[in-house]
Simulated assay, not measured.
Amino acid sequence: MPAKKIAIYALTSQGLAVAKRLAARLPGTLYASKNLEAEDAISFESLKHLVSASFNAFDGHIFVAAAGIVVRCIAPHLQSKETDPAVVCMDQTGLFAISLLSGHLGGANELADRCARIMGGQSVITTATDSAGVLSIDSLAMAKGLAIGTINKVKDVNMALLEDRTVQLYDPEDWLGLAWNASFEGKVGYEDWNDTMPGIWVSWHNDAPEGSLALHPRVLHLGIGCRRDITTYEILDHVYAVFKKYGFSMESIASVGSVEAKRNEPGLLEAAEEFGVDPVFYSTAQLAAVDTPTPSDRVQAHMGVPSVAEASAMLASHGGELIVTKEKTSTVTLAVARSNRA
């Protein structure tokens, strides 16, 4: 996972000293008001205009400024707790770091804690579960590398935990590490699932009961072979069709792999971006060393290896199981491997 991009803003000379310390330790991109004439920072005239351009370009924002100013600047750009970046507001003495937006999913709570440690100050966390010292399921899911499929159900589970109510849990591989937690009723399956109770369903399939909080481990690795100049849509359509056929969750995609010769194929690169992963490319020597179930003489003739899709998927899964052998259209070949639990 790529490192998070952080923007840090200073409006006053005293605040600039704080911002510089934060930028050096995090690290982050430093912005300073033009009248400060800070040589080692990007200057701006209007914070409002700057935030309009930068808000969605960074994973997190730290404002060394009054909270009221920050709220007015970010308000027009807020979309949802699932997509909004982390926002932390710090006073110009470095005494308090307030987690203002996207505390859990965006990581603002953690970012506020880091700012406070750097400055020797105090983080201010107001999310309910953190204030009560109770487990936050969205924070736990993120820490465990699980994608949240039904974001609107997070609040139901967190509220139940706050009220000390038991939560149903289907997590046969114990991805969440809650097998022995008394707040959760484990080993629950379809036959005894109660639709009237809050519950969590962890699976790499699209099989969660209606009303549950669906969490998806990222364990599915796509191996893709394709024609030159293929469109993004041809790849996406084939992947969607195969995933629908097998009932796989798109949120469980962990990687996209192919042969080195496809490194600059725009359609493949854009498809990987659509899946939210960085593509991985393998040399012909790496691919040729993999024993695949359905090698192809045609692929050998064109690419110099007996398999691209299956071999790429198997390499990406680091010894996992090939769960879908190659499935083809006239322009795309797809194979899917599942990485081991570890």
Rank of each mutant, 00 (worst) to 15 (best):
residue 160 A to R: 12
residue 153 K to L: 02
residue 172 P to L: 08
residue 173 E to R: 12
residue 161 L to C: 07
residue 162 L to V: 12
residue 176 L to T: 02
residue 161 L to R: 03
residue 167 V to F: 03
residue 161 L to Y: 06
residue 158 N to V: 04
residue 159 M to A: 15
residue 170 Y to R: 11
residue 177 G to R: 03
residue 156 D to Y: 08
residue 157 V to W: 10
residue 153 K to I: 00
residue 157 V to Y: 10
residue 156 D to K: 13
residue 167 V to M: 10
residue 159 M to N: 15
residue 156 D to N: 14
residue 155 K to Q: 14
residue 180 W to N: 13
residue 156 D to C: 06
residue 156 D to G: 00
residue 162 L to W: 11
residue 156 D to H: 14
residue 176 L to C: 04
residue 177 G to P: 06
residue 165 R to G: 00
residue 160 A to Q: 11
residue 158 N to R: 01
residue 170 Y to V: 00
residue 177 G to H: 03
residue 158 N to C: 08
residue 158 N to S: 07
residue 168 Q to H: 04
residue 163 E to D: 12
residue 174 D to W: 06
residue 169 L to V: 06
residue 180 W to Q: 15
residue 179 A to Q: 12
residue 168 Q to V: 00
residue 177 G to I: 01
residue 158 N to L: 08
residue 152 N to K: 14
residue 162 L to D: 12
residue 155 K to W: 00
residue 166 T to C: 09
residue 166 T to W: 00
residue 176 L to N: 03
residue 174 D to S: 11
residue 169 L to I: 03
residue 168 Q to T: 05
residue 161 L to H: 01
residue 176 L to G: 07
residue 165 R to L: 07
residue 172 P to C: 04
residue 168 Q to C: 01
residue 170 Y to A: 06
residue 173 E to S: 08
residue 154 V to D: 03
residue 162 L to I: 10
residue 175 W to R: 08
residue 177 G to M: 07
residue 159 M to Y: 06
residue 151 I to D: 05
residue 158 N to Y: 08
residue 156 D to I: 04
residue 162 L to K: 08
residue 153 K to Y: 05
residue 152 N to C: 05
residue 173 E to W: 02
residue 171 D to R: 02
residue 164 D to K: 15
residue 156 D to T: 13
residue 154 V to R: 05
residue 160 A to H: 12
residue 176 L to P: 05
residue 163 E to Q: 15
residue 178 L to E: 06
residue 170 Y to W: 08
residue 166 T to S: 11
residue 158 N to F: 06
residue 162 L to H: 04
residue 162 L to N: 10
residue 158 N to M: 06
residue 152 N to Y: 11
residue 163 E to T: 13
